[in-house]
């Protein structure tokens, strides 16, 4: 990758500003992708051993990418500098990372439908949660 990976802290500041920018603009998308970082690891499936990746010896880091999806302009010309950044999350930092991730998403994504508090119906969600806890 040309730009390289950024640190987790830097990642969240950039993500927050990208979401805010989209929100101000009034339309647009924020794309987030996560996958296992399998570059330069021995645990990659090959022809000899197609299931080599199923039980790796050590936990693997995860790669999280963000983009605004504007890789092309409207007349199908490649965008020279699209908004694009990525970070690597080590396995032991996963929990803190996703906690912060949820926070950034909840704060930033204001165009989603808010919970309707005026006419509260009988909450189905409460029942579902109860069922989950039981089962």
């Amino acid at each position: 990758m040309a730009s390289g990976h950024i640190s987790n802290g830097e990642f969240f500041t950039q993500l927050a500003s990208l979401i805010e920018k989209t929100q101000k603009k009034g339309h647009g998308s924020v794309h987030l992708t996560q996958k296992r970082l399998s570059y330069e690891t021995t645990a990659a499936p090959s022809k000899d051993d197609p299931l080599a990746d199923l039980n790796p010896a050590a936990p693997l880091p995860i790669l999280v990418r963000v983009s605004d999806g504007n890789t092309q302009s409207q007349d199908r010309v490649k965008n020279k500098d699209p908004v694009k950044f990525a970070t690597v999350v080590q396995a032991d930092e996963l929990e803190t990372f996703f906690a912060r991730y949820a926070e950034v998403c909840k704060v930033g994504m204001q165009s989603l439908r808010k919970r309707d508090r005026s006419k509260r119906k009988k909450t189905k969600k409460g029942g579902a949660k109860g069922a989950e806890a039981k089962g």
Partner: peptide, 8 residues
Amino acid sequence: RISTKYNI
């Protein structure tokens, strides 16, 4: 891979 898209 898992992608998330927030779209307005």
